[in-house]
Nucleic acid binder design. Structure first.
Lengths: 349, 349
DNA sequence: GGTGTATACTAACACGTGTCAGTAACACGT
DNA sequence: ACGTGTTACTGACACGTGTTAGTATACACC
């Protein structure tokens, strides 16, 4: 392969200095270049098919024009994979608007939790979006203290690091309010995960508050704990069905867990929504194709990625946004499993 | 934030030259450094928390240690999104083994098809994986001719560019053979897409060959054409059901299209698999949760990403692999929709 | 005719690293 | 005493760009 042309080659061909080439190609304002020279430079660059070397530019400018999305491992792997396309495309969409590239960096199981710090310390990127952060991460706090641009996807209680997440509590309230509006008074809940997870606690709190609003006392006996996967949902639902007085509706705070719950209901011959109404949370791609199609709380993955990248880049560029933490709104997607559409079951939602 | 330490700072603290610091930290072989000096340098680097600057390193070495995954837009957007997590994590997994980073670059609808060339020409990356290439892409051929490392995910007929894809024809054969083994003689097909798409032609060819093997004449009347989405599958199945003598089994060359086909069957009151056996292709996440659970041909997304990245990096590092094109094997996932398990319908597959 | 100013450009430095060629010190054999 | 070789290190250059300070010319103004 022939040698790549450099700005020196362009300068030579145009009969000007390298400086002039730089000034013309970068459109530096408030500098006087005659139209003829400008034209000559542009023509030379075009003729040589010149593209400036990114590495050299990074070095001299001190900017990489790159942000990284760090994807932590965790017990919720398949669950979070469902959001990866949306999140990533949202992030790249925002990044492109500002002239940034996006590096994808999953942390694999044979690596330490903080394997991503070299990205920051080695100046591979100008900033990081961390998805699924661990609270015991001291390297994270160090970097934030030093002023390195960081945005969390998810939440880290106790740290004042900018973060982007969905409003879990309000999402849960919307779901439960919907069941209440349909006339249910005895509403159970299956959490998405153990309460050690912030999102899990918040969704439970939303459930509690919605009941409270309606004047219904919170009953611990109607709450079961999921653990990200289908099987945990199946067991939780079986436990609820085994109660002396089972609920007539259940809010399952994760679609994946809800799939297991629906299976348990099917296995026991209960009809959904007639015998038991079900509302999920997340709106994963599968939910609309279930039978019955799952009514669920939509999580805007694209919007989360977009917001995270936008916030991060604003921080990188010196802005100090005060709207942190960002909490995006959810939206209830009414399908068949809640009973609101029982009249047209079988049709599309 | 305090100034980042450079190798000069490390040299000063250790009382040696910058050269020595570089030699020690990079473990350059066949060079004599006394153990004491080596120790002093390592200690100084540790104490200052020194990480070499990636940009400077890129510039001097001429390597970015980065590959990019270019994600083309297309009419099959939601379909391909299903494979993004697997593909991307496969690629990053291989990349990490070789010390490379992965840049994700979707081409959005307001950009030209070849917006990715600046990644190559501007030396942002050492090589590219192009997913969903367009055949009319002249910039692609130019770069390949100049020796820039490229690997395609998918196929581009007529170009000798290294590529990675699934063996569509064999996958289709496996699916149809399975239906034949279950005793079906009148087997229809719904393609995943119009025949302008290579994968579509290959899957049709696999169907035809499997029939031929069994001595069954190919019947054009039993073939309908899908178009990536659910709705096209619904219409295709309706057309097949409207035949004077409908098939007893159908191979649908895309799970997404198969979902529509299943809906059409349900709407017309046909039972699956009793009245009509169905086998899909792709094994998207949703397929196992459908009712009946969809028997389908599994596409190894992770393996495709892994192979593409591995092949690309071998090319970057000067290897000239002759095993191109790479064709990964598929695997039939038997669930409920084909009738092979009709005895235990309702159980897990 | 001297002074000031706008125009159109260029020489030289800086970014932080990897590496090649070179050097000083010392040991060793004859 | 002298060349040869080994050890342990260093000085200086190169990578390709952005940018600051500076120069040369032309032109206007009183």
């Amino acid at each position: 392969m022939p040698d790549r042309p450099t700005s020196r080659d362009v300068a030579r061909l145009a009969g000007v200095s390298r400086t002039t080439v730089s000034l013309v190609l970068n459109n530096v304002p408030d500098v006087h270049i005659s139209p003829e020279t400008r034209q000559r430079v542009l023509e030379a660059a075009r003729q040589l098919n010149y593209y400036p070397d990114a590495s050299a530019r990074r070095l001299v400018s001190g900017k990489t024009s790159t942000i990284a999305l760090v994807w932590h491992r965790g017990p919720d792997r398949t669950y979070r994979d469902a959001f990866l396309p949306g999140l990533l495309q949202g992030a790249t969409h925002a990044a492109r608007r500002y002239g940034y590239y996006v590096l994808f960096r999953p942390i694999e199981s044979d690596e330490p939790d903080d394997a991503w710090v070299e990205l920051a310390r080695g100046r591979h990127t100008d900033g990081l979006i961390l998805s699924g952060p661990r609270s015991d991460d001291t390297a994270l706090l160090d970097l934030h203290r030093e002023g390195f641009p960081l945005v969390l996807h998810g939440q880290l209680p106790g740290a004042d690091i900018p973060s982007v997440d969905v409003d879990n509590e309000r999402g849960a309230m919307i779901a439960v309010r919907h069941l209440l509006a349909l006339g249910h008074r005895r509403i159970g809940m299956v959490t998405n995960a153990p309460l050690a997870y912030t999102a899990s606690r918040q969704r439970l709190e939303g459930y509690r508050r919605a009941l409270e609003e309606a004047g219904i006392p919170f009953d611990e006996a109607l709450v079961r704990y999921g653990n990200f996967d289908e099987e945990s949902g199946r067991q939780a639902m079986e436990a609820l069905l085994a109660l002396a007085e089972p609920p007539t509706a259940v809010f399952v705070a994760s679609d994946m867990v809800a799939i297991g719950a629906l299976r348990a209901l099917r296995e026991q011959g209960r009809r959904v929504p007639e015998d038991m109404a079900v509302v999920g949370f997340d709106d994963i791609a599968t939910s609309r194709y279930l039978i019955p199609a799952l009514t669920t709380v939509h999580v805007p993955a694209f919007g989360l990625g977009w917001s995270a990248a936008e916030l991060l880049i604003r921080i990188i560029e010196g802005d100090t946004p005060n709207e942190t933490p960002v909490r995006l709104e959810t939206e209830l997607v009414v399908r068949e499993s809640c009973g609101a559409r029982s009249g047209d079951a079988g049709k599309r939602g």
